[in-house]
Design a protein around this nucleic acid. Structure first.
Lengths: 329, 329
DNA sequence: TTGAAAGCGCTACCAT
DNA sequence: ATGGTAGCGCTTTCAA
């Protein structure tokens, strides 16, 4: 650990005071240009770099937000992260990205350290609010895709109801009556997903049977497997709605393996509206979320919490889904 | 901006000195447990959170590394980022991710701020070393996929030669003779890519013509378009090697549109070996890079630079490609 | 077990 | 144009 070069070393070398060094380095006026040059030269020669901490301590600005996501390799979260990064950059804030590897233990470890590293935290959590609150004491927290109970938390609400209804309407209008779903049940909260609830509502609204539901892991392979099983039990299905796009892509593959042509023999509708849906063939029809906006909103809300500003009204903290019709349905 | 709650406020409220507060909060021994509880209660009540800066200033540990990538939405960079995050977490370091939106201007803006935010920087840069050096003065820099000239820089070298040779060998062994390439030429450095050079070498090694090369943008649509054009000019091609997997996926789509069955009518080989290659059908055969290792290596090397430790030998700072045979060739 | 004093590296403010 | 002084919020000696 080489000794750190401080502003004092530079000052001594350049034969000036620290304040003059500070002026030269921060491009303040009120300094002779030859002095400035001498200081800059000395700094360069010594390999001087100002301490972030000392700077941060004295200039109370610099905001850092922690973004916690379950899996950076999942394109959905990448899109959200992209939106958050963009929004943060526009404000001159930093974002530290934490990947909890979809593991509760890793999430625990993350919230334990995050508290000393950032000013506010936004993202996806599976832990109970009590536990989050305990570790994240006093720090603003914005939950994404999960409503908060404790008042000191905040959340970005994802409302897919309208979009899912549009999707079912679309399928029904195309003549589909026997529509199945590939649902995903989280290990943490083992109950039917919200997406399934929306789907059921929409189906019963049309007087259709919404009970044909398979379960799938959140992966391409999982989706392929689940569709194969579902079709084995219900060969009369003409359309399927899936928990998300990744699962839908697996379904697309399985359909092809079974010799079904999408959308003619089987229509497939995903959820999320990822870019990824355009690389498969046929391009995926999906209930689309504005992922960039989700990230941006989370940052915005964190900023307000931090500044003690008025919070966004609930309707602004909500992201609605809309049906994005491409080619698979 | 609500006044910040400091350790002094907690001390006053709890009726102890700051040092005692510090002890309570940092789980040091030498403190009465009732005193400790009183302090903790006061801290919680006031919503106290220690200043990262003050802490960092006094305990000179905490390392933060900046990861600069051109586009978080590109799965290649996401995989690299994933590797970097993982490696950093294992060391207890933080990573701040910067997305330069594939823009030189944005890259300039990034390097201007990055210097005051992190201890070292790793990633993808398009700017000249002189300019990087000027802004990143004194800070360790690890270039990925680009060799360094200046000694104070460091780089992770990507060697795809062996992998590309394997790919061409594989195609030739399958009977292919007329093999084209879809190359990408960067706006910044407009010369044939290294990947093309490797391809040409491999082809001429087999006594084959390596001049059938189309140019493509780095996107699915670009790849589709480029393949269509290339086949229009050279309808006798039986295989194509592409600049990367994203381009290859576009080629896959174009081939299907043209009524060609992959790999029977046209074999397609990508480059990168992304996970993404498994979601398309047929799954993409590709010259694969260990993206996780790239990210991890960059972090490792940055750490050594920071600590003044012995640098990794050049052969360790290199990532080799290998042919990953899936279904498209 | 607790407290007083010093100081981490820097910038802001007020002198000169 | 330059320097002196104070102080950001915290932890780390060292005394008591």
């Amino acid at each position: 650990m080489g000794k750190r070069v401080t502003i004092n070393d530079v000052a001594r070398t350049a034969g000036v005071s620290r304040q003059t060094v500070s002026r030269a380095l921060n491009d303040k006026g009120e300094i002779d240009s030859s002095t400035k040059q001498r200081v800059l030269d000395a700094a360069r020669e010594l390999g001087y770099r100002p301490s972030r901490f000392a700077r941060g301590l004295v200039r109370q600005d610099s905001t850092t937000i922690g973004l916690v996501i379950p899996d950076l390799l999942n394109p959905f979260f990448t899109e959200v992260a992209h939106g958050a990064l963009e929004a943060a950059r526009a404000r001159g804030w930093h974002v530290i990205v934490y990947d909890t590897a979809d593991s509760t233990d890793e999430e625990r470890r993350t919230i334990e350290v995050v508290v000393s590293q950032v000013d506010a935290v936004v993202g996806y959590f599976s832990l109970a609010e009590a536990e989050l609150d305990q570790h994240l004491s006093g720090m603003p927290v914005v939950l994404i895709g999960r409503d908060h109970q404790t008042p000191r938390f905040s959340s970005i609400h994802i409302d897919g109801e309208k979009g899912v209804h549009e999707a079912v309407d679309h399928l029904v209008a195309a003549g589909h009556r026997r529509i199945g779903m590939l649902d995903h049940v989280s290990r943490v909260k083992p109950s039917p997903s919200l997406r399934r609830v929306w789907f059921t509502d929409a189906m019963t609204g049309h007087g259709l049977d919404a009970t044909v539901v398979g379960h799938t892991a959140q992966s391409v392979d999982g989706g392929a497997e689940a569709l194969t099983e579902l079709l084995a039990e219900h060969p009369d299905l003409t359309a399927v709605f899936t928990y998300n796009d990744v699962v839908a892509i697996g379904a697309l593959r399985a359909a092809r393996r079974l010799g079904l042509v999408v959308p003619k023999d089987l229509a497939v509708v995903g959820f999320d509206g990822l870019q990824l849906g355009t690389v498969v063939d046929p391009a995926l029809t999906s209930v689309a979320l504005d992922t960039t906006r989700i990230g941006a909103l989370a940052i915005e809300q964190a900023g307000r919490l931090l500044a003690g500003d008025a919070q966004l009204p609930p309707e602004e903290l909500q992201v609605n889904a809309v049906l994005l019709v491409r080619n698979s349905a």
